[in-house]
Design a protein around this nucleic acid. Structure first.
Lengths: 220, 220
DNA sequence: TAAATAAGTTAGACGAGCCTAACAAATCAT
DNA sequence: ATGATTTGTTAGGCTCGTCTAACTTATTTA
C-alpha cells in the first residue's frame, strides 16, 4: 500500500506527463516545484519509488512512470475527479472550491467507496472542469476539444472544458456565467491582439482577450 | 491544526469517556490498547497533547480531555457519524462496512464540507447504529433508550440503537432483519438464563440470548 | 570548446510517531 | 502494611519525509 506522500508523487508525475504533451518525462526540479518540496527531497523519494518499480529513474536522467506506476496514478486521478464531481453536483461547491478538498479525499482507500460513488453520480465521464474521469480499468474517455481561439468568426461552439484551473480564472468564468455546456458565438476576431467579441448564451456581446480564448476548450 | 494521529488520540479519549460512564478519565494502557499502540507511545503523545492544552494529564494520573480537547473530539465524532450516515444511506454500504471507511473520512479538513454534507443528508440526528451525531455547536441529540433486556413480557418496543457495534453482531442483526426502527414484541422471558422469546416485525417467534438482549437499545 | 549556468545528487540533521527494555509508582491482596 | 502485580514512564533507537549545504553532472552560451 502506498503512503499519502508516495501517492502525491505519482499523481504529480502523471499530471506533468499530460502537461508536457508528447514527452511524458519530468525532471527532479519540476517535480519538486509541483509538490512544494525541495529538489533533494524529490530525489530521495524518486529512489524509493524506483525501488518499488513505480517509476523509471536513473541518476541525472529523465523520470517516467512505469506501467504499474501509471495505473496507480490513474486510480488516484479517478478518485480525485469523482470527488470533485460529487462536491460540485451534490454538495453545491463552486467550481473553484472543489479542488482543495478533493486533494484530501483522493487518498481515501476503499475500492468499494470509489465504485459506489461513481455509481451514485451516474457514471460521469467528465469532472466539473471538463476533464475526463478515468474508468476503473484505467481507460480515459476522450473528447474532441479545441481552443476557443481556434473558432472562426461567425461560428458557434459549446464549452466543454477549461484549460486553466486557477481560482482566478474559474471565478472569472463564474462571473461571466460560463459553465460546461454554455454556447458561445464568435462575433468578431481582432487580428491585432488576438482578442475576440463573443456572445455567451443569450447575453450581450462582450470582448475577451487572447489569453482567455486560449484557456477555454470548446467543441463545434 | 491537528495531525491525523493527534485527532485519533482525542477521539479515543472521547470514546473512552462515554464508555466509562460517569468517570470520564482514561488510563494510558487503556488508550494505547484502543489505538493499537504501545503504552510508551501513548505516554509520549499525551505529553504532547497536554502541551497543546487538549488534555489534562499528570504523571501517573488519570487522563481527561480539556474543554478545548473535547470540542475538537466532538467535531471528529460528528464527521465520523455524518460520513457513516452518508455511506449507509446514499452509497448503500451495509451496517458493518461503514465504520472502517468513516475512520478515514473523518480526518478530512473542511468545515464547509461537513456542513454541506449534513445538509445533503437532511440534518440527521442519529447515525446508522443509532448513535447521536453531534451538531456543529457540539450539542448531542439525546434519545431515551433502554436495553431490550429491560422490556417486560408482553410489552412492545422499537429498536433505536445498537450497544455493540462489532461486525459479528451487526451481521447477525442483518440476518434477523433487524434495523433501526424495527418493532419487537417480547413474548416470553426465561428467568433461568436471561434469554427471551421475541417477535421481530411480523416474523415468526424466535429466541434470543441474554447477551443479545443486552446489546440492543430500544424505546417503549 | 571552455566557462558559466542550470539541474540534480549526496551527506548529515531533524521532528513525528512508533518501538523495546528497563525502571518507577500505584494498587491490590494477603 | 508489605510484597506482588499492575500500570505508567524513561531512555534510546528506528523509519519516514523533510530540510540545508556542499558537491557533481549536464546544458547553454560566448
Amino acid at each position: 500500500m502506498l503512503s499519502y506522500t508516495e501517492e502525491n508523487y505519482l499523481k504529480a508525475l502523471l499530471k506533468l506527463s499530460f502537461q508536457n504533451e508528447d514527452k511524458p518525462e519530468a525532471g527532479t526540479n519540476e517535480m519538486a516545484a509541483h509538490l512544494g518540496v525541495k529538489p533533494a527531497t524529490a530525489t530521495d523519494m524518486l529512489k524509493k519509488l524506483k525501488e518499488k518499480d513505480l517509476v523509471n529513474y536513473k541518476k541525472y536522467g529523465k523520470i517516467l512512470l512505469t506501467s504499474s506506476g501509471k495505473q496507480q496514478a490513474l486510480e488516484i486521478l479517478r478518485k480525485h475527479r469523482l470527488w470533485e464531481t460529487f462536491l460540485y453536483k451534490k454538495l453545491d461547491f463552486s467550481w473553484d472550491e472543489v479542488h482543495e478538498v478533493a486533494e484530501q479525499l483522493e487518498h481515501i482507500q476503499s475500492t468499494k467507496l470509489v465504485d459506489k460513488l461513481e455509481e451514485f453520480l451516474g457514471f460521469p465521464e467528465f469532472d466539473p472542469h471538463g476533464d475526463p474521469i478515468p474508468k476503473a480499468n484505467g481507460e480515459i474517455p476522450m473528447l474532441e476539444k479545441i481552443l476557443l481561439s481556434e473558432i472562426k468568426e461567425g461560428e458557434v461552439c459549446q464549452v466543454v472544458a477549461v484549460k486553466d484551473t486557477s481560482t482566478v480564472f474559474l471565478q472569472y468564468l463564474e462571473k461571466l456565467q460560463i459553465t460546461i455546456g454554455s454556447p458561445i458565438k464568435v462575433l468578431e476576431r481582432v487580428d491585432f491582439d488576438g482578442s475576440m467579441s463573443i456572445q455567451i448564451s443569450n447575453q450581450e456581446e462582450r470582448n475577451v482577450s487572447m489569453k482567455f480564448a486560449e484557456s477555454l476548450f470548446v467543441k463545434r
